[in-house]
Write a protein that binds this DNA or RNA. Structure first.
Lengths: 159, 159
DNA sequence: CGGTAAAATGATAATGATTTTCAATTTCAA
DNA sequence: TTGAAATTGAAAATCATTATCATTTTACCG
């Protein structure tokens, strides 16, 4: 018998992320609850920079009994697993971005529409390291956000 | 009669800052209250990256009747005047830094002791502009914080 | 000066985001 | 299956900040 499996690549990736999370829970002796699975599932289904509240609302649609606090708690776990990064921006609530399969990057943020673009400039990275060392610091991490107006918003305002 | 004035340079600078603030108030038809003068005076006397609460406490020592809200309100005015910049960091309350006489700069922050070092790298600045433009953005501003361990803390942990 | 409109103040309540608490429920190893 | 320990949802607490509002101050005007 020949069986042809037609997993979509996307699903493959999500399964890897699910496995990483299950693994994280196991190795830290945390329990595998329905809620944690459900929240991860919804998190994975939305590849945007969400706030906790936005994720909560999305989770509610499929799993109405889940509470706000559990979403927050699970986001912390996802961050600890390395699937997610918490971004504290200039204003507004924290946003959570997908990390799996994303290399380290910084952000270009449109002050008009709030759009996020992930950017990376190896030369800047190198100079940041150098700058830290110049001051005798042992570099750990950094954050860089570039604010500006994206092409669409520029057109909108001119038109 | 010969009079020898021996103004300290420091005092000179502070007077300039005071004048700038008075000027800002006048041109915006804001009133020149005791509280505003007092808060500026204390702000100028502490050249560190303070939180609103730290400033409030310092103000209280000399002017016990000043309220928390007025400190917040005055900090906004100081920012508007350009004497002060509000920094929203990864964690904790906002910090306020002195801007007068400080060129644009970013921060190197010690994760051990919380020390701030003001840094600037023209090459990084240039690359940031370029990076924004590469993505079609009209650059506005940016924030960059480099986290690491300062020389003192490195020694402490090794000793 | 004294009167007065507008602005500023301090105290306090309200807000928004996040965290903690706690009784009830669920998980999971034995 | 059972029971200890972890997790949950709801609600209260917290923390930083902002808004409200009655009272006081400021600044201008005669």
């Amino acid at each position: 018998m020949i069986m042809i499996f037609n997993f979509k690549k996307e699903t493959d990736v999500k399964n890897k992320e699910k496995n990483l999370f299950q693994n994280y829970l196991s190795t830290h002796k945390f329990k595998h609850s329905k809620q944690r699975k459900g929240i991860l599932e919804i998190f994975l289904s939305i590849d945007r920079h969400l706030t906790a509240e936005e994720l909560y609302r999305a989770v509610k649609q499929k799993y109405p009994s889940v509470g706000f606090a559990t979403v927050y708690r699970t986001l912390k776990l996802l961050c600890a697993t390395g699937l997610c990064r918490e971004l504290k921006l200039e204003s507004g609530p924290a946003r959570y971005e997908h990390l799996y399969g994303h290399k380290h990057h910084d952000h270009l943020i449109c002050t008009g529409c709030g759009r996020f673009v992930e950017v990376i400039d190896p030369e800047i990275e190198r100079l940041q390291q150098k700058l830290s060392k110049t001051h005798g610091f042992l570099p750990q991490e950094h954050r860089m956000e570039l604010y500006g107006i994206c092409p669409e918003c520029r057109n909108k305002n001119n038109g």
